[in-house]
Design a protein around this nucleic acid. Structure first.
Lengths: 343, 343
DNA sequence: GAGAGGTGTCAAAGCGCTTTGGAAACGTAG
DNA sequence: CTACGTTTCCAAAGCGCTTTGACACCTCTC
């Protein structure tokens, strides 16, 4: 059933039916009612393609997920972010498309999205410090918001991000307060912006106590469970093993825990661990008392905020960029304790 | 730049330009070359909305993810599935849209997707044993493929699934061969089809050795880390604690491991664990020797297959439904060993 | 030298909707 | 009874593409 058929069946013009359905005032309440009933009865819904061709609005948001060609890794954080964003879109009557893009084919994808007019706006995931995509989208004149930031970019753009620097400096300070001096940083890939900021936070806290980061206690890679395990194992076997680990993801922290157990070290007593926790729905960090002491910030909530920000931007393209800096909570759990006495 | 402008700039009609670009034979190679060059120079790409209005094909696949209203849980498996499917779509020039749908609003979503003609086909995720969506989509005449199956559905439809029954009966047999008799099943939600099948496999293997499943050793819930932990803890505290766990997801298995460690039980010696492993990219199960003995099947590969199956179906709607039953490998890891002697 | 058969190109219709610019119908006021 | 708003509706244009049917123009062939 399409508009034409519907209007014929009602003995009205397409114009009137369209107006009645879209809430325009130039149609009498009686007619509107009659039209709505018929539409509902026939389960009529306007064809999106025709509608967006006519209005110029696709009612569609694109999410572009770079997939590292090296590891074929999907960022696990992404699914919860999407869940939050999807919720916001549904409320606003928008749909969402996903482009999984190998990071060497990015430019083409964006240009094509813009040219093909499939979407009204874009969410950028996983920004690197030096992020070409921002400039590109500005040139293409397509509204967008970044989940995260790009330190090296100095133009103004909309973003939603966690205060990674502050979160990690606070976590480091806590470990220092507990007497730890050899603190390992098990970080994400350090071409990623968030990882750089976390390192900065970590180093700042150390520096303020007159300490320098020991390069042997720093690691950086894709945040898998296995990476956490390997790294912890290697560092613990070194000749100045750390007494504490600061980990960039709960998944890697689980790997660190595995390494500790294997080495018969008790987490929270022999070795302390703090991790960042994105509050992924399937990976809860304990119920009453958290397993891991953690800097916590809901990525799902970030998704919701990013979506709404983008929708506003589309509504009013003249609007100046918006920024949302989310503060991470520092949740005390059972994985931290005073540094063991040197013996 | 649109078709009209492009054709004017070339001094050709829109028809010729369109045909040249779409590879029709009625245009001379010289002209085609000239058109392609110009298109490339102007970075021309046809407007999707107009194109699909004209052709009737959206070049778009919908993925509908039910989100449990109870736990607001995103199935973690989903992101890897999507990665696999996305790859296949990209190759075929298709896009993908996502609908995150609370499970009480499903019917409406499907009807709407069909009516609005946003997509050419649909992938159904997370089928329950009794799955209304299949009947619904058949009625709506929208091509679809199911990731998983619906036991209670007796019409024929396309699906891609793991042989869950066989996988779990093999795993159970292995545990029985190792001398285990009290084997716990830490399963997913048992209104989910895959969970039912896994239980069937488990019970079949027990039955064949003249054993019955002990209800005290069965659990069923959303497969979080915490659920694994809680369940294992509770069962281990019972008066006939299991000597082995059969777990439906690696994430929950990590929770089980945590409970074991907390109870000072060594996994693989005191208690054996077998888990199902979907090969999620960020959750590798060890590198050389797997941590967990596992029934393994790549969900990413499943995504790829599902996508291609659906594309074939769209290409030729008359085609009979296709079925892909993937066999899970049983990978021996370090989490299984002979049952401890009764003392 | 005319008809047959290709080849290369085009004008125009159509996809299903929204929206512009009227126009008919109906009061109401002068 | 005319004039003039209001209200209610409509015909037609337009969004950017594909595709149908037709038309020149060439090249053969007999």
């Amino acid at each position: 059933m399409n508009l034409k058929q519907l209007s014929e069946s009602l003995g009205l013009s397409q114009t009137t039916v369209s107006r009645a359905l879209n809430g325009y005032p130039e149609v009498s309440e009686a007619t509107r009612k009659r039209v709505q009933d018929a539409a509902h009865r026939h389960n009529y819904r306007p064809n999106t393609r025709a509608r967006s061709l006519a209005t110029g609005r696709a009612h569609m948001i694109g999410h572009v997920i770079p997939i590292s060609t090296r590891h074929e890794m999907m960022n696990p954080v992404f699914s919860d972010f999407i869940a939050g964003a999807g919720e916001a879109y549904a409320k606003a009557g928008y749909d969402m498309t996903l482009s999984i893009v190998p990071d060497d084919a990015e430019d083409a994808t964006y240009r094509s999205l813009a040219q093909k007019k499939t979407v009204d706006g874009i969410v950028i995931h996983g920004p690197r410090a030096n992020e070409r995509r921002i400039k590109l989208l500005q040139d293409l004149d397509l509204p967008f918001v970044v989940h995260g930031r790009a330190s090296a970019e100095d133009s103004d753009y909309s973003w939603v991000d966690v205060n990674n620097r502050r979160a990690f400096s606070r976590a480091t300070e806590l470990l220092l307060d507990l007497g730890h001096r050899r603190i390992a940083l098990v970080n994400g890939l350090e071409d990623m912006d968030f990882a750089i900021r976390r390192r900065q936070g970590y180093e700042k806290a150390l520096r303020e106590r007159g300490l320098a980061a020991d390069p042997a206690l720093g690691a950086s890679d894709e945040m898998t469970e296995h990476y956490g395990y390997d790294t912890a194992r290697r560092m613990l076997a070194g000749h100045t093993p750390p007494t504490a680990f600061l980990v960039s993801s709960l998944i890697s922290a689980i790997g660190v825990r595995r390494a500790l157990e294997e080495a018969d070290l008790k987490m929270g007593r022999d070795v302390s661990v703090i991790t960042h926790d994105d509050e992924l729905s399937y990976l809860g960090n304990g119920k009453d008392v958290p397993i891991f002491t953690a800097t916590r910030s809901s990525v799902r909530e970030a998704g919701r905020i990013a979506a709404n920000t983008l929708l506003e931007l589309i509504e009013d393209p003249a609007r100046t960029p918006r920024h949302h800096l989310l503060e991470a909570e520092l949740m005390l759990g059972r994985s931290t304790g005073p540094a063991p006495q040197e013996s």
